[in-house]
């Protein structure tokens, strides 16, 4: 008989930490950080997200439901399911951003991937920590009351660096 095989669910590095800096507020660029944070938490990795500059929209109550996607300037954008490009010159046409946003949201929903606010709910439920950037808050004249309730604080860049001592870091 072969010996018992039991999966190793203990991590070889139980202290592993991941810090993700979310600096983009376009709908398509909001997702990489969320997906990686969620994956890391599901692997038992302590995860902290820092929202800065345009990424601040992801946690701002009045904006987080309306992130948009524009194909302008994105030369990798092609029609869904094909290799065809729409010429860049057409991208700034009126309504193009709305159409592209709607299309992307549908593709994301079809995969059962939640919208940004729901996704952050799930990340917090899984033990993730959300932090807001001090400079971004000051520039936008926003305070804690403008942000999701589960944002743990508005902190300086140096506070975040100090807090994430020893963590692996992703800048998105």
């Amino acid at each position: 008989m072969t010996p018992e095989i039991v999966p190793n669910f203990g991590s070889d590095n139980p202290d592993r930490k991941l810090a993700i800096i979310c600096s983009k507020g376009n709908l398509d660029m909001a997702y990489p950080g969320l997906i990686l944070a969620n994956a890391a938490l599901g692997e038992g990795v302590e995860t902290m997200l820092f929202f800065t500059f345009w990424g601040f929209d992801m946690i701002t109550k009045s904006r987080m439901n309306d992130l948009q996607f524009s194909p302008a300037g994105n030369t990798a954008m092609h029609l869904p399911g094909s290799d065809m490009h729409i010429p860049q010159a057409m991208m700034p046409a009126p309504g193009m951003t709305a159409v592209a946003t709607k299309m992307l949201k549908k593709q994301i929903a079809d995969l059962d991937v939640p919208e940004v606010p729901d996704f952050l709910d799930q990340i917090v439920a899984a033990g993730g920590h959300l932090w807001a950037c001090r400079m971004s808050a000051d520039m936008n004249k926003l305070t804690m009351s403008d942000l999701r309730e589960d944002v743990e604080g508005i902190i300086s860049a140096s506070d975040f660096i100090e807090m994430t001592d020893g963590a692996q870091l992703l800048f998105i």
């Binding site: 669910f9 991590s11 599901g42 038992g44 439920a125």
Partner: peptide
Amino acid sequence: PVKEQFALFPKKPAKK
């Protein structure tokens, strides 16, 4: 809820 999953199957709920 995800939170409960983490409480019941700590650290790596989906795989456990």
